[in-house]
Simulated assay, not measured.
Amino acid sequence: MDDDVVPIVEELRRRLPQVSAAEQGQGKEEACAQDGEGGEENEFPFEIRALEALFEAICSFLDARTRELETSAYPALDELISKISSRNLDRVRKLKCAMTRLTIRVQKIRDELESLLDDDDDMADLYLSRKLDASSSPTSSSDAPYWLYGSPNTGSKRHKSSRVSGTTVQRENDVEELEMLLEAYFMQIDGTLNKLATLREYIDDTEDYINIQNLNTPLIA
């Protein structure tokens, strides 16, 4: 397994422990009982908890890599400024390549989060269990009796309208809760990207300084 993937898998295992089918059934019964007794806030469904664990692991991993890079890069750049040598140039060249690769990865995660946050339909589609429940429900559109759609009966129309209204409210609540969750990780990954942008500026300033010193050796070959 890729070393970069290991911490993400470990985080998923920690946050989403495997349970038996019997335990899953018991958990559902307990959750229903809690909802009925105290009206406590429902926990995110499994797929959203998995998504949360995934983003938490990825964002934390990339931020840790960025901090490690900062710890190595800034002293190396300062040393290069104080003493321009082939050894120091080669060291900074490698660090800049590592920064470029890391920036691409961070930017990709940021773009994916931004894309999700910009589309309510995409966020709603992430609730896979809602779709499964709807498709297996005896009142789903595929199994509903024809009179729900064609009958002029007022009571039937009212029943259908009430069901649709409830579904719409549930969807809006789902999107709002997921949006708050994703925004937290967007801010985290955006902060990581800003750290890398600051580091790039420092490297660019160092390159300018070296050029001023009339050393025609670029940091990247």
Rank of each mutant, 00 (worst) to 15 (best):
V5Q: 11
V6S: 07
V6K: 15
P7I: 14
I8G: 08
L12P: 07
A22Q: 06
E23G: 04
Q24T: 05
K28T: 03
K28R: 14
K28Q: 13
E29Q: 08
E30G: 00
A33T: 08
D35G: 05
G36W: 07
E37D: 08
E40I: 15
F44I: 08
A57W: 06
F61N: 12
R65L: 15
T66R: 04
R67V: 15
A73F: 02
A73Y: 02
Y74F: 10
A76D: 00
L77I: 09
I81Y: 02
K83D: 05
I84N: 01
S85Q: 04
S86E: 08
L89M: 15
V92N: 04
T100S: 00
V106D: 03
R110H: 14
D118H: 09
D120Q: 12
D122R: 13
D122T: 07
S129R: 10
S135H: 01
S136H: 09
S137R: 05
T139D: 00
T139E: 02
T139C: 01
S141K: 11
S142P: 00
P145N: 07
W147C: 14
Y149D: 00
P152L: 13
N153S: 06
T154K: 14
S161N: 13
S165M: 03
G166E: 02
R171P: 01
D174W: 07
V175D: 10
E176H: 05
E179G: 08
M180P: 02
L182C: 09
A184R: 14
A184L: 10
F186N: 01
M187I: 15
M187P: 04
G191L: 14
T192H: 03
T192S: 05
N194Y: 09
N194R: 10
N194P: 00
K195A: 12
A197Y: 12
A197R: 12
I203S: 02
D204H: 11
I212V: 02
N214Y: 09
T217Y: 06
P218G: 10
I220L: 15
A221H: 09
A221V: 15
